[in-house]
Amino acid sequence: MSEPIIICRDVHKWYGQFHALRGISMEVKKGEVIVIFGPSGSGKSTFIRTINRLEEHQKGTIIVDGIELTHDVRNIAAIRKEVGMVFQQFNLFPHLTVMQNITLGPIQVRKWKKEKAEEIAMQLLERVGIPEQAFKYPGQLSGGQQQRVAIARAMAMQPKIMLFDEPTSALDPEMIKEVLDVMTGLAQSGITMIVVIHEMGFARAVADRMVFFDQGMIVESGTPEDVFHNPQEDRTKLFLSQILQH
């Protein structure tokens, strides 16, 4: 855990006149698990979406795995190969089976043989606990199962970094745990993770570092221990008291 795999320096992003990201600087080391939290509209999602170029940043530098994100399509493609992403709304491909969802990327982008891709997809489905669903369509699965497929799909590309954009926010309460269990397993496997999430129990258990976002800026960051028990900023204290008190 030494050299940084993601380096962001003074990243800015505007939507029209709205200044969504106001100078985010952050370094993520290899194998680190980072939890980003904060009120809605604070730029958390926007920020992690700039890391694989789903959103374009307009100022500042982002370097992922030694490659700088520029307008160069080759750089973007190279970075997307190494960065997996899990969305709030799952975004599985409804016209493909679970197996096809998972193997599409490896076959098309990594150019693996179909047999190899399917073998690895099966291993991943075992890992997320739903191998028996391999030949169903996403519409036939529960929300929790779909999100686990989405995790398997992202992992199938064997990325170095995984981004999670509020992976449990669209789930029924009883399904949140099954997804969090899978994510905890991943975190312990040593992959670099950036997770936008409001599940503070999960954050406390697996995060190496927690980052608090508000109004497009990083207000505070530190170990879960520091952030929960000894927050420095008033804004952090207020937010934590609101979400922990119910």
Partner: peptide
């Protein structure tokens, strides 16, 4: 979300359209 998911797994513009 379908476009984003296709981008995120690294499909090219052409692959995204076709598949």
């Amino acid at each position: 979300g379908q476009f984003e998911a296709a981008d995120a797994i690294g499909l090219s513009g052409m692959q995204k359209m076709v598949h």
